[in-house]
Write a protein that binds this DNA or RNA. Structure first.
Lengths: 118, 118
DNA sequence: TTGACACATTCCTATATGGGAATATTATGT
DNA sequence: ACATAATATTCCCATATAGGAATGTGTCAA
């Protein structure tokens, strides 16, 4: 099998930094036209359109036509799975407290894991 | 340019579901040998080794030799950039409160954005 | 030493990429 | 109807995959 398409899910879609930039830009504004994004990203228009296409297909953004432009808006909820997944690791770096707690949990688990030196 | 290698950063590395699984498995235990992971993932050993190689090169995991096995352990801190990025979007789906707040912010921004119907 | 175990690496292939260049599509103004 | 603005789509290519198969490497045990 080859690498999963970028359009597979949010995880694959946000791997590309330009797409994260687009998301960031859309988060700071209600709507943005493509040309607007092109100006901000300093990337050729077809490239931007293609990135938007990927984000559209995983529903991270949605479009609406306004005159001859297409207004893109963020649908951040699609990022929730990413957040949910990575959030479970927050305790590994937050607070001294979290680290202590984590070490305790780990220790509690350890007795049942590698009891033997082969 | 082609797609960025999976070894570029954490964002690219975690796009692959199997690698997230490996991370999840390592989070639940202090250390795990490769064969152990092979058993849990039900994936051929070379495939697992290759995924571990990717995770190693972005420092999400680290290895240590113990006898003839290699013990892998999670270095979750490398996931922090992902968490930091996605966390800024949490307000978009959490609580009614968050959403209200977010809408207010958006409204505040809007006056200065698209003042004109071309 | 030899054999077996635990892993890593190499070679293979189908598939998808991101950007560049060129072209197609859609809507507006005249 | 026509030119033009704003976007999308298509064709191109170098590059990198994930998995399968086969092979290499290092370590223990007898």
């Amino acid at each position: 099998m080859a690498r999963a398409p970028t359009t597979t899910d949010a995880f694959n879609a946000i791997a590309e930094p330009r797409r994260r930039q687009i998301i960031d830009l859309l988060a700071g504004a209600g709507e943005r036209a493509v040309g607007d994004l092109v100006g901000a990203l300093r990337l050729p228009q077809p490239a931007v359109s293609k990135h938007l296409g990927v984000l559209r297909s995983v529903r991270i953004v949605s479009v609406s036509r306004r005159g001859r432009r297409r207004m893109y808006r963020l649908n951040a909820r699609e990022l929730k799975p990413v957040h949910d997944w990575v959030k479970t690791y927050e305790r590994f770096w937050s607070h001294q407290l979290g680290r202590i707690k984590e070490r305790a949990e780990q220790k509690a688990r350890e007795g049942s894991s590698q009891p033997n030196k082969p």
